[in-house]
Design a protein around this nucleic acid. Sequence first.
DNA 1: GATGCTCCTGTTAACGGTATCATCCGGGAT
DNA 2: ATCCCGGATGATACCGTTAACAGGAGCATC
Lengths: 336, 336
Amino acid sequence: MADNHKPPTMADIARIAGVSLMTVSRAFKPDSLINKETRAAILKTAEDIGYVFDSTASNFRSQKSDFVAVTIPAISNPNFADTVGGLADALASRGLQILLGYTNYHMQNEERLIEQFLRRKPQAIVVTGGKHTDRARKLLKNTHMPVIETWDAPSEPIGNFVGFSNALAVRQMVDHFVEKGYRSIAFIGGDVGRDTRGSDRRMGFVAAMIAHGLDATRLIAAGPPPISALEGAAAMARLLETYPDTEAVICVSDQSAFGALTECQRRGRVVPTDIGVGGFGNFEIGEVSTPRLTTIDPFSRMIGQRTAGLILDILDGRPGDNVEIAPSLIVRESSR
Amino acid sequence: MADNHKPPTMADIARIAGVSLMTVSRAFKPDSLINKETRAAILKTAEDIGYVFDSTASNFRSQKSDFVAVTIPAISNPNFADTVGGLADALASRGLQILLGYTNYHMQNEERLIEQFLRRKPQAIVVTGGKHTDRARKLLKNTHMPVIETWDAPSEPIGNFVGFSNALAVRQMVDHFVEKGYRSIAFIGGDVGRDTRGSDRRMGFVAAMIAHGLDATRLIAAGPPPISALEGAAAMARLLETYPDTEAVICVSDQSAFGALTECQRRGRVVPTDIGVGGFGNFEIGEVSTPRLTTIDPFSRMIGQRTAGLILDILDGRPGDNVEIAPSLIVRESSR
DNA sequence: GATGCTCCTGTTAACGGTATCATCCGGGAT
DNA sequence: ATCCCGGATGATACCGTTAACAGGAGCATC
């Protein structure tokens, strides 16, 4: 097969098939008014000459893309990966493509990504969390496309949101621990302001402890996210040195909770008898550890699916309602 | 700020700033011939009227996008996530955007994704593995853009590749186990043909065992990928029931190896004394388990970085050389 | 026979940037 | 004065598709 210099266009197909350019165009739209045989002939011609539909030209002329832009803190966090997976699968049925960007937990990067994404005129833009730079907020506010914030329930959402209050979710865990008799409870992580979900969880911990009339000052820093199991273990070591009488610890994620758990075991502290451990995220690691981790399931994948539903609602002109996810406490053997 | 009906274009800026359209266009290209003050004035005007650059129009007219298309089996696999992360970071410096798609370990999905991606005329296309449907191969062969296969070292690459032989990587592990005195060695996973990396690893296991003159028939199925720790544990249970005298097991991934490890412990088999366990992938879970897992580090992130380098080489007209990654055996406490 | 309707096809004019080439200006070399 | 040259700007055509509108053919209805 000789290589001609220019890739074929619809005009080439039109000429060969003996129809007009517009008819060729229609042949490529699934639900357009066109004779079945005409379409078949056109598609065959297209296949024969190796025609490749030009989405760029199509998007340009119709002034809308088939993209949905999404920013997440990190692709390596299974929670966000699940959310994106749910979103992508649900949107694929409508032919919508995900445009994915990683902020590495930096709002500055998020702003840059948003700016880039807006240039492509996506059908909607999905961001993680409810905290953004002023400029990012302004950019999102000024746009006319659906804006969805996820993994949070901001009091002043930019557009809509699909998420939950991280603070309230942690409160569930504190309530559970207190009910089970733990009193001296510590929190690991969420010390770096830029991980807004982490610090929301820590703030939720503090508020809940105060509400129970308990000491809310046992806060251990674990550094910037993402917090690995090893960092969780290091934080646990510091915790036990600073507050040896700690009865329970709640960690910002299952990763760090797993690390904390192993550190307890290394030091001969029996979980959950000597010390209770709670995580966040319902990662697989908490399901296969010994003992298994008490955690909070944020329904990561569902967040993605509901986000997709919300986007489609809005695009179809239906009212777009915020979705409050209700994270669920999963009690396992790492707590009494 | 009242909302006018149409978003502003370069023509609007040109009118307001009193320059030609072309000058406005130049103001947005970093290294174009334009007076510094003129550019500043134009950019200020743009900011004032809330102009958003239209990448679609730009890509359309210049007949090239700033996309690099990438397909991976699953976003939730940390190895692939790392590869994409390395790729995305390295390409971002050149303003290239990743267009990411998940195949869910199905070549059919990969074919569909490739077809979609080609319509956007990306600068390059990156796929995972060296096995594809006939149609996908044909599509990739016919295109004129760089095609990179990763995570494999195919004997007949479509374009270039950045990867390694999964079979040879596993051979390293077998050699290590044999050297340490293990003889009755089993393999878990890789039974489903469609996970080509998994089955390559299993084939590598079989070949290596035969080369050592050992029994290569202890193969345990673990079902379709991705294989969770729980599935790894179940497979281990079956292994110990079928071949109680097994001295060591090599698993298709660290996830499944961790599951196998916990199952051994549940049954009172001491690792690595009673039984040796090896994984693949150098996941964090193998670093925090007790004992820690002997594994193979495929340098996931480096695969992404080197892929980016290769793409840039080709785009810049430099020769594009295949990159053979040399996965490295990491011996830890799960093997003697 | 006129009218209306459905189904299908065609003509034309964009969409918003950039490639290309032309032009203009000021200053240094000739 | 003339020429040349590099920096800066402008005029114009055009990338490949689709929106919008305009028919025409065939058939049923009045």
